[in-house]
Amino acid sequence: MNIIVCIKQVPGITDVQIDPEDNTLVRENIPSIVNPFDMYAIEEGLRLKEAHGGRVTVISMGPPQVASALKDALGMGADDAVLLTDRAFAGADSWATAYTLSLAVKMMGEFDIIICGRQAIDGDTGQVGPGLARQLGINQLTYISKIKEIDPSGKTITVERLLEEGREIVEAGLPALITVVKDINQPRLATVANIRKASRIKIKVMSAADLTGVDVNRLGINGSPTKVIKIFSPPKREGILELIKADNINEAAIQLVDRIMAEKIL
């Protein structure tokens, strides 16, 4: 099987603290990590390869330092890595990102499945996966919690989709793009052997000029329909906490229930 996994490098919000003084982000030393949902995507790709053979190619669009995210994926066991980096790609929204990724994927030859994370934790849009599938004209299966069956020769896949009300079983033809949720698997750690192997793998770097059929007007900030006009901190909730203090638990419970009933939400 030829498996493509799309990964994004994001600021590791893990260590982001909110400054209690002015409710802004404390932004010193935010490390960059592989988008957590993309870790599940990489893991699922590796499992498919282990079960059915083939290659896992990871691809990412971003500034040159994204190479380190790709190295992480290689360290987990991916076989190839493609880095799309160019000043012309900067400032891309989900439309332009999906467009750019689709041009690179079209140049990668035959593939059976593309795996994305359900969303990136910086933008939280979850739109790049559907956008990429549509640009490529292949089936899209979003919010997948399980691949029940996949038959690369018969070109079919059966999955469980996580919806608000439950899980839906869907059968589809391959090639397809899936986006995965957290409970699909438990990502492995990189191994020393793979890290060593990874250090010898050359990341394929592509710029706008390398993309066949590119329309430069559709790249980066110029090609992005959406435009951010303002960024601000969410209105801070000042001194909202009412701490219930009472002599005993029952008294506290009575007081709290009083207050909640007064909110008229029940």
Partner: peptide
């Protein structure tokens, strides 16, 4: 911005070359 809504809107915006703002 449900599973179905996001799934559909992502495809529609792609073909229409429209801006799509999530959530």
């Amino acid at each position: 911005a449900s599973s179905r809504g996001r799934d559909l809107a992502g495809s529609v915006a792609t073909d229409l070359y429209a801006g799509l703002t999530a959530d």
